[in-house]
Amino acid sequence: MEKKKILISGNEAIAEGALQAGCTFYAGYPITPQNELIAYMAKHMPKKGVFIQAESEPAAINMVYGAAAAGARSMTSSSSPGISLMQEGISYIAGSRLPAVIVNIMRGGPGLGNIAPAQSDYFQATRGGGHGDYHLIVLAPGSVQEAYDLTQTSFDLADKYRVPVMILGDGILGQMMEPVRLSAKKIKANTFKGWALTGCQGRKPNIVKSFFLREGALEEFNLKLQKNYELIRKKEERYEGLFLSDAKVILVAYGTMARIAKSVISQLRSAGKKVGLIRPISLWPFPQEPFNLKNKKIKYLVVEMSYGQMLEDVKLAVCGRQRIEFLGRSGGGVPSQEEMINKIKKIL
């Protein structure tokens, strides 16, 4: 079957990807720069699905909690300040072992910040964000096509591991339009979830909860969670590597930053400079494998629209074997090609 190609924004691509993945429940609250997403869901959610404009982000995430508990593929989207408000609910989703997809189209912070693109919620996304020992799987698309594809992957991963999955993009990715090849594969209706709340006909009652009062019970549960995270760490690292076999300087960047890095690399490569790229696609689990390079002379340049957040994960992955440089701007500034090239020339 020939696949249909359409021109849409990143926000719309995530919405379309969700619908294609069988998302039947969406709740959200307006916030820039992700408003196209909520509008798309309002317009295109099928009649049998549910769209709710919630009264707040805490309400939206708790609606997602309820829908996930009821067995539906459910999603919400927001941007940085709204995601902060959702952290309590995300912690409950993780603690109740519910699958859900949360989209954060990041803007500048802290506080109300501004509506310019940023990557400054990296720590919040990859360290759990709310209270307790938990993780989300965090996926960072680098193009509109990938935003569409990874949204479908997100629902599958959420169901497979019973964890919340976050799609982490920035305002540029959300707003820009690119052609997207739509997936032709028909997604099966929701797979049966034996733990979901449907009424206890013919079985014992199901309970969805994150409360473990009995002595030792919470630790026992937390160890199960950790085991699940360990499995995810082993199986779900995702990244793109470019010119890693001969690169002397390896740029490390994700999302929109990686696109700018790619332009820089093709420019420098045509001038004979040996520059490569590691683009983490899963930010949690953070890809370890591509950093396992023996050559001690390699230098890394981490580039972010934030002030050294992913840098910490790169340091952990490189483990002192090679030198790491950093270039970051945030609050409306995006590291330019020129800034990157100047920095690379200094360290080459």
Binding site: Y65, G66, G71, S74, E88, L197, G199, P205
Partner: peptide, 21 residues
């Protein structure tokens, strides 16, 4: 069948469960 809800969020959780089922 029962679900827990965070403090104050019961009616958001209930809204979604009822809409789904």
């Amino acid at each position: 069948d029962c679900s827990e809800a965070a403090h104050g969020r019961a009616l958001a959780v209930a809204t979604a469960i009822k809409r789904v089922h």
